[in-house]
Design a protein around this nucleic acid. Structure first.
Length: 279
DNA sequence: ACGAGCGCCTGTCGGC
DNA sequence: TGCCGACAGGCGCTCG
């Protein structure tokens, strides 16, 4: 489910403490339980439990959509994929149906990784780079300038939307924030990366950062059965709004499939460059 | 290099 | 009511 803003929201909540629970920083993991073994990308359940027991959470980080727990001697990375969620709960309550893994603390509560669709993954490794080493730039970092984006766009010849969602190209954008950024930048999702002008690239760079920052400011989006307090879903310009009026010009938002993903855009605000033939 | 198709999973929703 | 397909915030793989 989550994209960069949702992961950042979770990271902040776990780092600062929430709902009467303290920050996880400095806490010792006294036990780990895994209820769906494939949730663990590496190592095996037995090794995971053995290695993580007794380690202290030193820091909580994020890279793209990965949440990173820096522990005493290892790093644990979590990717929530489509339906994953993390929350704190008392040790004594009954296990919810979709809990895949829990970490227990001596303070009497646990961190639960709940993941209906079982796509989420957890890694325990010595070096986080072995998991996140191939990710593209971090979009909100100072080093990610419009010039960097420009050079990246020029180095590829690909449809804009799948390219922006490619985590090796740029880390953190998913289906929602890509559609939102492309609408803000007035670019068609199927436009080719090499057709983008330097000026359009500048606007796209700004739009990507704008939608991500607004998502974070609103604590992410809450959709369907997953509600964690964010309200960015109430401010979507195009995502999930096919048939509704474009906030800029009133034209009906269109929905097409691009790269096997639902794609929402305004056919008037986001025209395809002449020559290409797509609705 | 690029894009399409499929697999991985469970659940919800709308149409008939 | 029941069934059935479409669809869901992701990503890795294979195949042209």
């Amino acid at each position: 489910m989550p994209e960069l803003p949702e992961v950042e929201t979770i990271r902040n909540a776990l780092r600062e403490g929430q709902d009467g629970y303290p920050s996880l920083l400095g806490l010792k993991i006294i036990d780990a339980r895994v209820y769906w073994s494939r949730t663990l990308a590496t190592p095996t359940v037995e090794v995971f439990q053995d290695r993580i027991r007794g380690q202290i959470i030193e820091e909580l980080g994020r890279r793209g959509k990965y949440l990173i727990f820096y522990l005493s001697s290892d790093s644990m990375l979590i990717h929530l994929r489509m339906s994953g969620d993390l929350f704190l709960e008392p040790l004594n309550i009954e296990l919810a149906p979709h809990h895949r893994m829990t970490l227990e603390f001596q303070e009497g509560f646990r961190l639960a990784f709940n993941d209906t669709r079982k796509f989420g993954r957890v890694w325990l490794v010595e070096d986080p780079q072995t998991v996140i080493g191939d990710l593209g730039p971090e979009p909100l970092d100072a080093e990610f300038t419009s010039q960097v984006l420009w050079q990246l766009l020029q180095s590829k010849r690909r449809q804009l939307k799948p390219l922006l969602m490619d985590q090796k190209f740029l880390a953190g954008l998913g289906n929602i924030y890509t559609d939102e950024a492309l609408h803000m930048a007035k670019l068609h999702p199927l436009s080719n990366s090499q057709e983008i002008s330097r000026t359009q690239c500048e606007v796209l760079w700004h739009s990507i950062r704008q939608v991500l920052k607004e998502g974070i400011r609103r604590n992410g989006s809450s959709i369907d059965w997953v509600y964690r307090g964010g309200d960015f879903q109430n401010y979507f310009r195009v995502y999930g709004r096919s048939g509704a009026a474009c906030p800029e010009c009133g034209t009906a938002i269109k929905r097409i499939i691009v790269g096997q993903r639902s794609t929402h855009f305004c056919p008037r605000c986001q025209p395809l460059a002449a020559g290409a033939n797509v609705d």
